[in-house]
Design a binder for these strands. Structure first.
Lengths: 164, 164
DNA sequence: CCAAGATGTTTTAAGTCTAAAATGTTTAGG
DNA sequence: CCTAAACATTTTAGACTTAAAACATCTTGG
């Protein structure tokens, strides 16, 4: 009996209910916060979250970025970026030009208008985040950062494994 | 001088860079995992993540749910659910009927086919999650659950405050 | 050089998603 | 009763999103 159950144990379906609950909770948190930020951005600045996110990437890169860079950073598809950029160029927030050294590459950067508008939004955005995470102590934040870093590493390895 | 800086401190822009970084890390984790699950669902079962999520909600409710219930649980708009349900009824995974007691209400539930297919997917899905979170110890999982619960509570309060 | 292959972007087709307005139904107060 | 408010859902218009195919341009080994 003991031998049997030990032998079987390897093949028996293991219980991963806790990990599943963790994933659902992580997803709930993100969806909740994302929805709140989306609503405030629309209400306050009449801008969508993807546009804000894209501008945030560009704000960190004064010399501009290629579409591929943006796509990787934002973890969205190439085609997605193409459309977003189109609309942001149209509205005068972005400048887009073909690279001098590689004619495949499109370099985009914030226009003066785009940067000014983004900075206004970013300031307020930061206070919203502070409000949303307001109940967490400094220690909570540190601990969450650590555990999420570990989670990210674990997930990246899983992605790697599948791609082999 | 001391008085001045103390007086000013209240109005000075506080530094919330840490919370911002936490939010970005949370978002990165979720996006990364969500993308991986989406890809595996498509590759293995040719199903989209929203469809899987909707079926997961219904699997937990043998007596069916109303569209509003689903919308609240999934934290998506009503119109979104209408479209999703349409396609899942079309493909034979869902059954939809008007409530006997309230003709405004639509009750949906999994068909036999829908339930069977979901169960197969769910089993595999759970192993993917276990794989993705594989580096976390039991203690990590417990601690993350706790901190995310606190985060969720904090965010919900912020949502509440805005709605007043 | 020059044909593969790699790389960067766009296009396509279909699905997902939202906010807001419209529609249909129920509930309650007068 | 009957109308105003509340509620559940659908519709609408537009934006976002993906995967995959198509297109354009570079890079490189022979």
């Amino acid at each position: 009996m003991t031998l049997d159950s030990e032998t079987k144990a390897v093949e028996l379906p293991e219980d991963h209910a806790e990990e599943l609950r963790l994933w659902l909770r992580l997803l709930t948190c993100t969806t909740l916060i994302e929805g709140e930020i989306r609503g405030r951005l629309r209400e306050r600045f009449d801008v969508t979250l993807p546009r804000f996110d894209l501008m945030a990437q560009l704000d960190k890169a004064p010399d501009g970025m290629t579409l591929s860079d943006v796509s990787k950073r934002m973890m969205v598809s190439n085609g997605n970026v193409t459309g977003l950029v189109e609309r942001l160029v149209e509205s005068g927030h972005l400048d887009r030009r073909t690279s001098d050294t590689d004619r495949r590459v499109q370099v985009i950067r914030l226009t003066k208008l785009g940067r000014a508008e983004f900075r206004k939004m970013a300031t307020e955005h930061e206070t919203w985040i502070a409000d949303i995470f307001g109940d967490l102590t400094e220690k909570d934040v540190r601990e969450l950062m650590r555990l999420l870093a570990k989670t990210k590493g674990s997930a990246q390895k899983a992605v790697q494994r599948r791609q082999d």
